[in-house]
Amino acid sequence: MTVLFVNGAKMDLDVEPDTPLLWALRENAGLTGTKYGCGIGECGACTVHIDGQAVRSCTATVGDAAGRTITTIEGLAQKGALHRVQQAWIDFDVPQCGYCQSGMIMAVAALLAEKPQPTDEEIDAAIDNICRCGTFQQVREAIHAAAKA
């Protein structure tokens, strides 16, 4: 058994320490909002926060995450209120298929926590998640809107 702290809850999971955090979250914790896209840390669909930092959970292991604070897309809203990034995503109708957007939103939430008013250059450098639908235009607009919110 491995103990993980996810979205404010303590979870005892039947999972080997070398299991990627992604799969422990999806299959053992039942949190399927975090998505599998590549398994090699390239696409960012699996981005979660560990101690507030954006991490690609397909290349982090359960052992790496044990004892640390993990936040997934399901835990981003606080006390029933959507995170300002989620709200901006809704306001700008960002998602198309939406599959990459959990990871995109988590990456952006971490960016704004660190840089509340990012420039386009800072956005370019920080947000390199793959979106095959090509929502980048709305993503950029929504990031700037969330920064102002």
């Binding site: 039942g30 949190l31 399927t32 909002g33 975090t34 998505k35 599998y36 997934t72 897309i73 399901e74 981003l76 809203a77 959507l82 989620q86 995503w89 809704i90 109708d93 960002v94 998602p95 939406g98 599959y99 957007q101 959990s102 939103i105």
Partner: peptide, 21 residues
């Protein structure tokens, strides 16, 4: 008009094939 399927796509609630349990 706004899409009908956006909110669940921003909260992790949308069920894709890969999420069927």
């Amino acid at each position: 008009v706004k899409r009908l399927d956006t909110i669940d796509k921003t909260t992790g609630k949308m069920i894709y094939g890969v999420d069927v349990t």
